[in-house]
Design a protein around this nucleic acid. Structure first.
Length: 805
DNA sequence: AGCACGCCGACT
DNA sequence: GTCGGCGTGCTC
């Protein structure tokens, strides 16, 4: 009789449990457990989810009894050897918990949800307790749903051994629920209700007729809205009046999913494209791991190159992974890929529900989909035999995840390319300095597309010197030259896109008498004005309070709105152009799922002449009638004290400029700036990436910034400022001991927003070229600072931070 | 992360 | 005296 044991990474994200725990495999599960499966294991006095990483056939030499695995959740491993090794690497690389790295690779639906309930085991209890339980045998037991009093009583019962707590682990629900309606009225009642209506209650009457037709059937609300032509508000009214009930029903996968997309044929390639395709495809066929930087101006046909290489991978019985920023993952983009590769394509993006993501994941895992298109987390798609990995807009900062594990999808893509022996294509019109520098050094293969496909010229870019404008007129958001240009375009029935650069910017309230700024009581930042809810909100902790009418500091009435929001610009613009329809696109108007795509669609249908938005309009939109793009404030991202600010500004301006004048109409770009002489703005004007690269590299060299130096950021936080600062200076001292002379330490300094939710933040940045002991030191630092009974002190390490101010 | 264990102050 | 506050250490 053989025995089996298994190493498990448990679902407890902490440094102390960041290790494999060994469990015994019960007889009935022997030979059914393999590495990369999800299991439920007893841990302490509860049950939790874990991932098996290793099967051991010899009893480990330990002095304590091993516990048994409770349950195996998967029939086949959900993570293969590649993924398990990738997770290990990722944990080390990003200084993250192993469990977090394993979880991030799987759709959220495969995470566990935990439940506790409590059951009486003694009848010798007070009447109060009996009342609490009523007819129930078990009560849900958690401090959030129970009242504090009940929670106390039940806790005491547990302590007195009169009740036991039951721990449950659930695989998350996998089905999508949608709202449906059922009719609550009989035909007779409907008649009565109808008679009682006022004659002008047309909509209500229509609803009653509809309900009458529906009878006792259930219908999905969306469908009911379509069939009846009534809005959701009318149905909600009906619910309030007690005519109908809204219920949640399970929605099945849309069976029509791929039917509407027509198959398209590859387009003819330009010589430069042809060359790029040849180079990449050779690597695909030869299964050669090589990183390509595909640098191509907007409109040079990078996407077509991607599609050719994907086709090549498929032809060689291999799969393909294509990563795009979330924001450019538009329906048009998806359609373009699907129309070429049909149902082989799986799409992973944040607009999908948990269940839909799970469905797509399963399709990939079962090899039903061989091409994956998706945003950041799609880099972990369970593809096997990958033939090519593509990352479009490789410079995008959204490829870096902001919470644990703070991975950069670019690093992961390159890592996976090594495993699969396949080429990795990084594409961009404005590559990150890091990638461009590597291409220069020959680390990456450099491919260029310098011509636009239709040979059309790049749009004319004009600068508006706002300093001059300011001399002529009081501060306005839209200058006279820009307004004139807008009017001209509108006369020609063409469309206009206006971008408000809002990075690091918000609208706050300031007193014009004493300069008082309303700040969050918990955090160190000014509250942001929200016109929709008529309140002041903190973007960090969610604190909300009414808009002040009188200055709390000097009691003046001259406390008001300061700064520029899209809303304010829209109002201003609407006054200047009263007969023009303006669509506004910002965080507020796109919060709801799908709202983003809908707004773009409306603009595409020419329901509005002007589209006004923030950064998000810079990408992925391609409207033939847009001939003018205006940037209202190019400087806000430029003035941030951040070593990447010039790069960001240049990228942003170049990108929006690409939105003007596609197809047959010549485009024009107008950039309003207070710094018209700045190289980032000048070179964006001339669309000269190469020159920008040269100058910016020089700046980075002088400042000792990436790509000349690596950077790693350490952030500590805690409720007591002195403790946080002390810890940081301690780390600083230790670092000085182990670092070479070449390395530079910036800080420690308090973070610019020092207090968030009553936590103080201090940071330190290490700039270095090669430090053999640094990783080990940092790993140790994490381990010790957790064990040192300093749990109030949080420590975070971010390798290659996107920015630090 | 939870949870138990254990050491202190403030109540029936 | 006991209840319950939180600091500390452990979970195969």
């Amino acid at each position: 009789m053989s025995e089996q044991f298994v190493e498990v990474i448990v679902d407890v994200p902490s440094m102390q449990t960041n290790q494999a725990y060994t469990y015994a495999v019960p007889t009935e599960l022997i030979n059914q457990v393999f590495p990369g499966m999800r299991v439920i294991v007893p841990f302490g006095n509860r049950k939790i989810l874990g991932f098996t990483t290793k099967i051991i056939s010899k009893r480990p030499d330990v002095s304590f009894d091993l516990k048994n695995i409770e349950e195996v959740l998967d029939l086949v491993p959900v993570l293969n050897r590649e993924m398990l090794e990738l997770a290990n690497w990722l944990a080390k690389w990003t200084f993250s918990f192993k469990i977090s790295c394993l979880q991030v690779m799987l759709p959220a639906a495969m995470r566990a949800s935990y439940n506790k309930s409590i059951r009486l085991i003694s009848t010798d209890v007070s009447d109060e307790v009996k009342a609490l339980f009523g007819q129930e045998e078990e009560l849900p037991f958690d401090s959030k749903t129970l009242t504090p009093e009940s929670f106390k009583i039940l806790s005491k019962l547990n302590r007195d051994k009169k009740a036991e707590v039951i721990y449950q682990v659930h695989d998350r629900a996998r089905s999508k629920k949608v709202t449906a309606i059922t009719n609550l009225l009989t035909s007779a009642e409907i008649l009565i209700q109808k008679d009682a209506l006022r004659t002008n209650a047309v909509k209500s009457a229509k609803l009653l007729d509809f309900l009458n037709n529906l009878g006792d059937k259930t219908m999905i609300l969306k469908e009911a809205m379509q069939k009846s032509g009534l809005s959701s508000a009318i149905f909600s009214q009906g619910e309030k009046k007690g005519w109908l009930k809204k219920i949640k029903v399970e929605k099945y996968r849309d069976p029509y999913r791929d039917t509407k997309i027509k198959k398209t044929e590859p387009k003819k390639l330009q010589p430069a494209q042809e060359n790029a395709v040849t180079e990449i495809n050779q690597a695909v066929v030869e299964q050669k791991n090589q990183v390509f930087l595909l640098q191509g101006v907007t409109g040079s046909g990078k996407t077509e190159v991607y599609l050719y290489t994907i086709a090549c991978a498929l032809k060689n019985q291999r799969t393909a992974l294509m990563l795009v920023p979330e924001i450019s993952l538009t329906p048009q983009m998806v359609r373009r890929v699907k129309s070429r590769f049909g149902s082989n394509v799986a799409v992973l993006h944040s607009g999908l529900s948990e269940g839909e993501k799970f469905d797509e994941w399963r399709r990939i895992e079962r090899h039903e989909a061989t091409v994956v298109v998706g945003a950041r987390s799609a880099v972990f798609a369970p593809l096997e035999q990958i033939g090519v990995i593509i990352m479009d807009e490789e410079h995008e900062t959204s490829y870096k995840q902001e919470d644990m594990p703070e991975y950069n999808a670019r690093d992961v893509a390159i890592k996976r390319g090594q495993w699969h022996n396949c080429p990795v294509v990084l594409g961009s019109a404005t590559p990150s300095l890091e990638s461009r520098a590597r291409a220069q050094k020959g680390v990456y293969e450099w491919l260029r597309l310098d011509q636009r496909i239709n040979g059309q010229p790049l749009p004319q870019v004009n600068l508006v010197d706002m300093r001059q404008e300011l001399k002529r007129a009081p501060v306005v958001d839209v200058s006279t030259p820009l307004l004139e240009a807008i009017k001209q375009r509108l006369k020609k029935k063409e469309q206009v896109v206006l971008m408000l650069n809002r990075r690091g910017y918000s609208s706050f309230i300031m007193c014009r008498e004493c300069g008082f700024v309303l700040k969050c009581p918990n955090c160190d930042i000014s509250l942001t004005l929200h016109m929709d809810s008529r309140s002041m909100k903190c973007h960090y902790c969610g604190h909300e309070e009414p808009i002040p009418q009188i200055c709390p500091s000097c009691h003046s009435k001259k406390i008001r709105y300061y700064g520029t929001g899209t809303e304010k610009v829209q109002q201003e613009l609407q006054q200047l152009l009263p007969d023009t329809k303006i669509l506004r696109m910002d965080v507020d108007t796109t919060r709801r799922k799908g709202a983003h795509a809908k707004l773009l669609q409306r603009f595409g249908n020419k329901e509005a002449e002007i589209l006004l938005g923030t950064q998000m309009i810079a990408k992925g939109l391609d409207f033939p009638d847009v001939t003018l793009v205006g940037v209202l404030n190019a400087d806000t991202s430029l003035s941030l004290p951040n070593f990447r600010s010039a790069e960001r500004t240049f990228q942003l301006l170049t990108q929006v400029s690409g939105r003007a004048g596609r197809a047959d109409k010549l485009g024009e770009v107008m950039i309003q700036t207070f710094n018209p002489q700045h190289y980032a703005i000048q070179l964006a004007k001339s669309q000269n990436y190469e020159k920008f690269f040269g100058i910016e590299m020089n700046m980075r060299h002088k400042g000792g910034y990436p790509p000349y130096f690596f950077t790693t950021q350490i952030v500590t936080s805690g409720p007591n400022e002195a403790d946080v600062a002390k810890k940081m200076f301690e780390i600083n001292g230790q670092l000085k001991q182990i670092l070479s002379k070449q390395a530079v330490i910036l800080g420690p300094t308090p973070k610019p927003i020092m207090r968030i939710n009553n936590q103080f933040y201090y940071q330190l940045v290490i700039k270095y070229k090669s430090e053999p002991y640094l990783d080990e030191f940092l790993e140790n630092l994490l381990l010790t600072s957790q064990k040192e009974a300093q749990r109030k002190l949080q420590l975070k390490i971010d390798r290659d931070p996107i920015d630090f101010i």
